[in-house]
Design a protein around this nucleic acid. Structure first.
Ligand SMILES: [Mn+2]
Ligand SMILES: [Mn+2]
Ligand SMILES: [Zn+2]
Ligand SMILES: [Zn+2]
Lengths: 138, 138
DNA sequence: TCCTACAATGGACTTTGTCCAAGTCAATAT
DNA sequence: ATATTGACTTGGACAAAGTCCATTGTAGGA
């Protein structure tokens, strides 16, 4: 959504050149970039931007609920700008490609009270794993 | 299950003192330890065991399908000896406590073909998040 | 234009994990 | 019981991902 910057301004977010380029890099709903990938793309537009600033900015956007942190591979976390429509992920075990998926049903309904151990369960994260068509062909 | 060592021997696994203590530490189905936690507990019994050996051994046990790697927090991976009964995890967002859960239904059934993008989907991992009773009380 | 609270910087530091050359040892054969 | 040997272990160097902080810069209001 290109009104991300708009929303941030409305929230009183101090708008700097660095924050602007990070937000621009994250524009588009179908990217799942690591912090270093965000930094690299941001540095194309603003070469002097630091890694620390990218980490800070990503952390703030997560706190604001504008992006979501996903860790599908136990390595670097990825940052997902598709925070508006709830969804899950389908990951290729070979190449790591990530796709957004919107399964039917609500997995929360599958967790009976007896299996909740007194937790107040608020969220569920589902990761489907498999092999993508490209990797299957190769 | 305490026949882990038994099964490993049957598979022709070369049994060393180091591998034995790692397997013993992982004994019991309800632990979800990080590699460093495994190392610390193993070192209680065998002080000279090295980090590299713990990592090697955990990696082998994962390959053998005797334990499962889980990364619920995007930080250190945890090693789960409950590889026999398929299950998912319920994680406290405050303290990180992890519980095994066995939800009803199969989430794979909730992912229609139109949402599979040509992937051959073989596995699904579900993480429920919430607040545990202890953290809620505090 | 000036001020100042907030933001950016870069480098040190931490955590988590991998890799390797050299030494050690479990299991087998004699 | 001993020798043999390929597999295992070790410690330390290295790497990737992320955090922290003192210093410097600046966005936005007065
Ligand atoms: Mn996504
Ligand atoms: Mn478990
Ligand atoms: Zn693939
Ligand atoms: Zn808790």
């Amino acid at each position: 959504m290109s009104d991300l910057l708009e929303r941030l301004r409305e929230r009183g977010w101090r708008l700097t050149a660095q924050r602007r380029v990070v937000a621009e890099v994250l524009n588009g709903d179908h990217v799942h970039l690591t912090a270093d990938e965000v930094h690299a793309r941001a540095a194309d537009r603003l070469p002097e931007i630091s890694r620390a600033t990218v980490y800070n900015t990503l952390g703030e956007l997560v706190s604001l609920g504008e992006i979501i942190e996903v860790s599908t591979d136990g390595r670097a976390k990825r940052y997902d700008p598709n925070a508006h429509r709830p969804h899950h992920h389908l990951v290729c075990s070979r190449c790591g490609t990530i796709r957004d998926v919107h399964p039917g049903g609500n997995p929360l309904d599958d967790l009976p009270a007896g299996e909740r151990f007194g937790f107040t369960v608020s969220d569920v994260e589902v990761t489907y794993r498999g092999v993508c068509p490209e990797c299957a062909a190769a």
